[in-house]
Each structure stands twice: as structure tokens, then as C-alpha cells.
Write a protein that binds this DNA or RNA. Structure first.
Length: 254
DNA sequence: GCGACAG
DNA sequence: ATCTTGTCGC
């Protein structure tokens, strides 16, 4: 895509983000979210795309639904997809949301009783250049509560990976400890969470839709057996095996 | 010129 | 995202 065409696309995407941003609900809306032990929560979803080395157009879109609190796989769906939108930092959602929505809609149509009550998304929610990352985008378009969980710190709105940040990380003693990610405006956009006792590198949690930040952090921690929360860890596993299965089938057919 | 740039 | 096995350490 030419630089001019990309500039044009970015302008349209920015205004679409600004418009959808208005619809984000940053508070708890569900009964189970108010409960101390999330009683009433039975299904947590995870979504992800995976790619093969030289190919950034064909991907495997995956949705898993885990039981809560046992975190056992109840449902999984894999679908090879062809992506049309390019990856542009800050606009990940335009690339990934359509096929993730498709996966949720397939489930809603075939087994609505298995729809997740909340979805953990690999990426950011409000912790984003324009406070509208992938988790918000998927949340608003699906209507489901969503949480953004990023594995790396996005340096945005004055939040930096500086010495202060490093020392805050060092101060996280045990799983569940966290500190806020505060924008230059003073707004808390997310939290860095030590997700388990055994991992010193935090994950970055932010509100996607229909959940408060504190609930999002508490939920994320309660889904962690290892550093990456189980719904996302499981969905990664499945996407990889399926991508490689498809690759093998493709190679065999040649 | 250099660093940053979710997945 | 993806390229990549074993290895050192708690």
C-alpha cells in the first residue's frame, strides 16, 4: 500500500475509533463482577490470531471458551482466514476484529449456551493511543465484556518504560500485585499486573468493555496458572497446532 | 540519526 | 505475529 493510501486509511480509522470510543462502558455491568469470588461466572473466552512465517495475509483465527473457575476447555473453534487490512500500530483491531467477531457469531448460532461471559483479548483495551484498542473494539462490536491483556508495554500518553517504571516492576512482590499506568492527563489507563508468583515480568491489563479496571485485573489474575492467563495461553496453543496442521495439509497437496 | 511501534 | 533448542537457574 502506498504512503498516500495508508494515510487516507488511517484518517478514516481514526474517526471510526473516535466514534466507537463513545460506546465503551468502563464500569462493571454484570452480577458476577460484583462478587468477591466471581460466583455466577462460568465461562471465560480467549481469542487470538496466529500466522505462518512468510505470510501475513493468511492466518488462523481461534476462539476458546474455558470453564470458570476450573479453566478447562469447553469449546474451541479454528478457522483459516484471509486478512485484508494491514497491521498498523494503533489500528490492530481493524485487522483482527472481523474474524474474531465471526468466531463469536458462529458460536452464538451453534451453541449459544456456551457463549463466554467475558473475553480475554491478546492486546490492549483503553491502554491505547486513543483509548480504543482491540479489546474495546471487539467489546463494543460484540456487546460482550472484554479485557485487554498485553504482554508488552505500549508507550503511550506519557507512559514510558523508564527507570521509574522498572522500579515499580521490581516492587511487585507476588502474584496479584499491580501498579497503575497513568496517562499524562492523570487518567489511569490500565495496570501492570504480576500475574503469578513465578514470573517477574508483568502483563498489562486494561478495560475493554463492560468491566471496571479493578475487576479486570482481579479476573485476569484469577485466570493465571502461569504468566499468560489461561484463556489466552490455551488459544495460543490451539492456533499454533491448527496453523501448522493447515500448513502441512497445504504442503502435502502440492 | 535514534528509539518506538499491541499483534 | 514469525524465525528457534537447549540450557542455566530457582
Amino acid at each position: 500500500m502506498s504512503a498516500f493510501a495508508e494515510e487516507d486509511v488511517v484518517k478514516r480509522w481514526e474517526s471510526e475509533q473516535a466514534s466507537l470510543r463513545q460506546q465503551v462502558v468502563e464500569e462493571d455491568t454484570e452480577e458476577w463482577q460484583r462478587s468477591l469470588n466471581f460466583s455466577g461466572l462460568e465461562r471465560v473466552g480467549g481469542v487470538d490470531l496466529s500466522f505462518i512465517k512468510g505470510d501475513d495475509v493468511n492466518a488462523c483465527a481461534q476462539l476458546v471458551v474455558l470453564s470458570y473457575p476450573d479453566l478447562e476447555v469447553l469449546y474451541e473453534d479454528s478457522q483459516m482466514v484471509t486478512l485484508t487490512a494491514p497491521y498498523i500500530a494503533g489500528f490492530l483491531a481493524f485487522r483482527e476484529t472481523p474474524c474474531l467477531l465471526d468466531a463469536l457469531q458462529r458460536l452464538e448460532k451453534s451453541q449459544p449456551a456456551l457463549l463466554p461471559q467475558v473475553v480475554l483479548v491478546d492486546g490492549n483495551g483503553l491502554f491505547h493511543y486513543r483509548e480504543f484498542g482491540l479489546a474495546c473494539h471487539l467489546g463494543v462490536l460484540s456487546g460482550l465484556p472484554c479485557v485487554g491483556v498485553a504482554k508488552n508495554l505500549l508507550q503511550v500518553q506519557g507512559v514510558a518504560k523508564d527507570n521509574e517504571h522498572q522500579s515499580q516492576i521490581a516492587a511487585l512482590q507476588k502474584g496479584g500485585d499491580s501498579f497503575p499506568l497513568t496517562a499524562a492527563s492523570g487518567k489511569v489507563l490500565g495496570k501492570a499486573l504480576r500475574s503469578s508468583d513465578s514470573s517477574s515480568k508483568p502483563v498489562y491489563v486494561s478495560v475493554g468493555h463492560k468491566i471496571s479496571l479493578d475487576t479486570a485485573v482481579r479476573l485476569t489474575h484469577s485466570c493465571c496458572r502461569y504468566r499468560v492467563p489461561e484463556p489466552i495461553r490455551q488459544v495460543h496453543k490451539h492456533t499454533h497446532t491448527h496453523t501448522h496442521k493447515q500448513t502441512d495439509a497445504h504442503i502435502k497437496s502440492l
